[in-house]
Design a protein around this nucleic acid. Structure first.
Length: 395
DNA sequence: CCTCCACAGGAAGCGCAGGAGT
DNA sequence: ACTCCTGCGCTTCCTGTGGAGG
C-alpha cells in the first residue's frame, strides 16, 4: 500500500512554526517602521470618532512599502474603537474595477442578505446613499490599486458628491496606488477631492528590511533554521532591487521552503537558488500576462541585450546598452518574423514605458558619448530566461 | 552660434466595440 | 432594433530637448 503523503508531510518535523507568518499578506501585530505614517493617517481620520467627515486620503508608494498593511492596521483599530457608527470597507480594485462593481460591493456590506449585482447603476447608488443616511454611518472606503478602476472619475465624483446630499452619515475615500503616472490622467476635480491628504510611502532600506524579516522569521520559523547573516543577505538583495518588503518576504519564504526540503538551515546557497527560482517565476507570470505586441517589444530588447549588438560607448567601455531606436528596428524585424501586426514608434515608446513599470526593463536618459536625446534600455532580468519564456509564448 | 539628429512625450483624432437610452 | 455615447488602442502630427557637428 502507498503511504499517505500528506500524513508524511505533517509528521516530518519542519522548520516552519507557522508558515502563514511569512506570507506577505500576513498582518503582524505591530507594523515596523510605519509608526509615523500610521499616526498621521489616524490624525486625519480622527473626525470619524466625533461623527464628522474626515478628509479623503491618497496613499502612494511602490509595491511592498507597507501601504496596504498600514491601512488594514488602521481599519482594525477603528473597528475595535467604535464599531457601531463606522463602517470601514477595504476592497482591492483589481477585483472591483468599475464604479458599478465598487458600489455593489459597498452595498453588500450594508445588506449582506442581498446581492445587488444586476440592478441598475442608479438604483444601486441611490440605495447606497439611502442606507448610509438611514443608519447614520460614517462610511470609510479604501480602494486599493485604485488605478484599476475604469471610470474612476465618476466613482470618486459620485461618492464625494454624495456627502452634500447626506443629512446623516458620511462617505470618505482612501485611495491606494503604486502607479506614479496615474495621477496625471485624472480629472482635476477628482484629483483635488481624492488627494485632500496625500501620503507617500518610501521604500525600506536594508536595515529596516532585515528587522522586518527578523520579526517574521522569529515567529514563523524555528530559531535554529536561520541565521542573522542569512537575513542580512536577503534584505541586502531586496534593498538593492527596490526596498520591497513583499519580494523580501517571498524570498525568505522560498528559501525556507527549499531549506525545509533539503538541508535544515537557510544558508547562502538556498537563498541564491530561491532567488533564481523566484526570478523565473516572476518573469513567467509577468510575461505570460503581456499582450502579444508587448511580448514582441520585450523580445526585441532581450535579443539585443543577449547579442552584443548593443552600443559600444566611446570611452571603450563595453556596456551592452541598447538605445530605443535600435530596439524599434529589431522589433519591426520580429513582427515580420512572427508575421504579427506592428505599431508606430510612438506607441512602441508607450510600450517601453509600461515594461519599465512592470520592472522588466529599466531606462536611463542618454549619457555622455552619445548624440541627442534617447534612452538607454537595460533588461531587468537575465536575457536568456526572458528569451526562453518568450519563445514559448510567441508560438 | 545655429542647425541637425534622434529621440521623448503631449495633443488631436480615428475606428471600433460594447453599453445605455429610446 | 436603432441610435448615441464613451473608453480604448492606436496613428499622425507636433513641440521640446540636449549633444554633435559645422
Amino acid at each position: 500500500m502507498n503511504k499517505n503523503l500528506f500524513l508524511d508531510m505533517v509528521e516530518k518535523d519542519s522548520i516552519f512554526v507557522d508558515r502563514n507568518v511569512l506570507l506577505p499578506s500576513y498582518l503582524p501585530e505591530k507594523l515596523l517602521f510605519r509608526d509615523e505614517e500610521i499616526k498621521q493617517m489616524a490624525e486625519t481620520l480622527k473626525p470619524l470618532m466625533f461623527d464628522s467627515r474626515p478628509s479623503n486620503m491618497f496613499l502612494y508608494g511602490k509595491t511592498g512599502t507597507g501601504k496596504t498593511s498600514s491601512i488594514k492596521h488602521l481599519f482594525k483599530q477603528i473597528e475595535e474603537a467604535k464599531k457601531e457608527e463606522i463602517a470601514a470597507i477595504y476592497l482591492n480594485c483589481s477585483n472591483y474595477n468599475s464604479k458599478y462593481k465598487v458600489n455593489c460591493r459597498i452595498l453588500k456590506e450594508f445588506d449582506s442578505e442581498k446581492d445587488f449585482v444586476g440592478f441598475s447603476a442608479s438604483f444601486v447608488f441611490e440605495k447606497l446613499i439611502d442606507l448610509v443616511e438611514k443608519r447614520g454611518k460614517q462610511l470609510l472606503v479604501c480602494l486599493d490599486e485604485i488605478d484599476k478602476v475604469k471610470d474612476l472619475d465618476d466613482l470618486v465624483y459620485g461618492l464625494t458628491r454624495a456627502n452634500d446630499e447626506l443629512k446623516k452619515g458620511s462617505i470618505t475615500v482612501v485611495g491606494i496606488s503604486n502607479n506614479a503616472f496615474f495621477k496625471d490622467k485624472l480629472d482635476p476635480r477628482t484629483k483635488s477631492s481624492l488627494m485632500e491628504k496625500e501620503f507617500v510611502f518610501k521604500p525600506y532600506n536594508a536595515n529596516e528590511l532585515k528587522e522586518i524579516l527578523n520579526d517574521r522569521a522569529s515567529n514563523g520559523l524555528r530559531k535554529e533554521s536561520f541565521s542573522e547573516s542569512a537575513l542580512s543577505l536577503i534584505s541586502a538583495l531586496s534593498a538593492k532591487q527596490a526596498g520591497d518588503a513583499r519580494t523580501a518576504l517571498m524570498l525568505l519564504l522560498k528559501s525556507a521552503e527549499l531549506a525545509d526540503k533539503n538541508g535544515r538551515m537557510i544558508n547562502e546557497e538556498t537563498i541564491m537558488k530561491a532567488r533564481k527560482d523566484a526570478e523565473k517565476e516572476i518573469i513567467m507570470h509577468l510575461i505570460s500576462a503581456l499582450p502579444e505586441q508587448q511580448q514582441l517589444v520585450l523580445m526585441a530588447v532581450a535579443l539585443l541585450a543577449k547579442d552584443k549588438k548593443g552600443v559600444q560607448k566611446l570611452d571603450g567601455n563595453k556596456e551592452r546598452l541598447i538605445y530605443s531606436g535600435e530596439a524599434f528596428e529589431e522589433y519591426i524585424r520580429l513582427t515580420k518574423e512572427y508575421s504579427a501586426g506592428k505599431v508606430s514608434m510612438r506607441w512602441f515608446r508607450e510600450y517601453l514605458n509600461e515594461l519599465e513599470l512592470y520592472g522588466l526593463i529599466t531606462m536611463n536618459g542618454s549619457s555622455k558619448g552619445f548624440k541627442g536625446q534617447t534612452r538607454f534600455i537595460n533588461l531587468g532580468f537575465n536575457s536568456n530566461e526572458i528569451i526562453e519564456t518568450l519563445e514559448k509564448e510567441l508560438n
